[in-house]
Amino acid sequence: MPITPNQGSTGGGTLVTINGSNLDNTTSVKFGTKPATNVTQVSASQVTAVSPSGTGTVGVTVTTPGGTSNPVPFFYVGAPFKSSLGTTSGPLAGGNTITLSGTGLSTATSVSFGGVTTSPTVVNDTQLTVTVPAGTVAGPVGVSVTTAGGTNNGLSYTYIDDPTIGTITPTSGPTSGGTAVTITGTNLDSTDSVTFDGTAAPFSVINSTTLSAVTPPGTAGPADVVVTNPAASDTAVGAFTYVASPGI
Rank of each mutant, 00 (worst) to 15 (best):
M1N: 07
I3C: 04
P5K: 11
G12I: 02
G13T: 11
T14H: 06
L15T: 15
V16Y: 07
S21R: 11
L23F: 00
K30H: 08
K30L: 11
K30Y: 05
F31D: 07
T33S: 09
A36K: 00
Q46W: 01
P52Q: 12
G54E: 03
V60A: 01
T61Q: 02
G66Q: 07
T68I: 04
S69L: 02
N70F: 11
V77K: 06
G78C: 03
S83T: 14
S84T: 11
L85Q: 06
T87R: 13
T87P: 00
S89F: 10
G90T: 08
G95H: 11
N96L: 14
T97W: 04
T99A: 09
T99L: 10
S101P: 04
G102H: 06
L105R: 03
S106P: 05
T107G: 04
A108I: 02
V111Y: 01
S112G: 00
G115R: 07
V116A: 02
V116Q: 04
T118V: 09
V122H: 08
D125M: 09
D125W: 08
T126S: 13
Q127C: 03
L128C: 06
T129D: 01
P133K: 08
T136F: 09
V137T: 15
V141T: 14
V145E: 00
G149Q: 07
N152C: 12
Y157H: 10
T158F: 14
T158G: 00
I160T: 14
I160G: 02
D161P: 07
I165A: 00
P170D: 14
T171A: 09
T171P: 00
T171F: 10
T175E: 10
G178V: 04
T179G: 03
A180W: 13
A180N: 14
T184N: 09
T184W: 04
T184I: 11
T184L: 09
G185K: 10
N187Y: 15
T191D: 03
D192F: 13
D192M: 12
F196A: 05
G198E: 14
A200E: 15
T210M: 09
S212E: 13
A213C: 07
V214R: 06
T215I: 14
T215F: 09
P216C: 08
T228V: 13
N229Y: 13
T235C: 06
A236R: 10
A239N: 14
F240A: 08
P246V: 15
